[in-house]
Amino acid sequence: MGVHLLHRAALSIPVLFGVLLLGFMLLQLVPGDVAQVIAGPQATPEVIEQIRKDLGLDRSRVIQFFIYISRVAQGDLGYSMINNTPVIQELGEAIGPTFELMLGSLIFSVPIGIALGTIAAVNRGRALDRIIIAIAVFGVSMPVFFIGLMLIMYVGYHWELLPFLGRAGPLWTLDGLAHAALPSLTLGLIFIGPVARMTRTAALEVMNADYVRTARAKGLAEHTVIIRHVLRNALIPVVTLIGLQAGYLLGGAVVTETIFSWPGVGRLAVGAILARDLPLAQGSILILAVSFIVINLFVDVLYGFLDPRVGKR
């Protein structure tokens, strides 16, 4: 198991390097001039040039990249070009709220998705199965921004049940929980569909397995068979899916955070890219990539617990 984990962790290093390189190159390709942005529309070319020089943007891109890499290796992500705050500080403040959103969305969407998938599998071919699959397809097809705006319009505005403006504090406070509810719901709704569909498929495969037939032959109650024998084994691909989808949650968080003014990394990244704040944009991309890698490592560990054969291979 330990070797497996070490192997996976080692594989993450070239991935990280690739992310740094790609992120740097992509941001270089984005049109726009940060010096112009900082100087404003009424600035003279001399002022803009001086700002460019001050920021080191007049150096070659190769040099800029190697300076960036060496700084990152030392844990220095630089300073925001726009407001001169350390990038690491900005990211530190933003990553918590993003994980809160992810956690909030996973807490309700995973159990609901697994429950719906299991019910659909048990009722395969019946009306209930078709309804659940239709709901899952609907959930997957809905764009995040549409779900978010609908929730704001109905839950927030018409029914005035929940707030939707920003973050009010940590999740464990009532106010913080209330503010996190709608963005988490928005993010989670797109997650229910894939989990339900994967659970259904996996459960259907397992339901025909010999050991399930044996369990039934032993006279176990149907719900015991489903929960203890079918679901436990069907969960392995579901956990993988959750790990993979968590990355999409980070992507979805960009839109959700914008709609709900949630102060997370997604919104930080969008703002940084729009402002051509290169260190902050690169830092945001890096932290999102690292989060993705860490989540996948975590999934690997979990995989080992769910399927002991993994660690022994």
Partner: peptide
């Protein structure tokens, strides 16, 4: 839901 909604005025 009620608990969260009650939090709303606090907002």
């Amino acid at each position: 839901a009620g608990g969260l909604a009650m939090a709303t005025p606090a907002l």
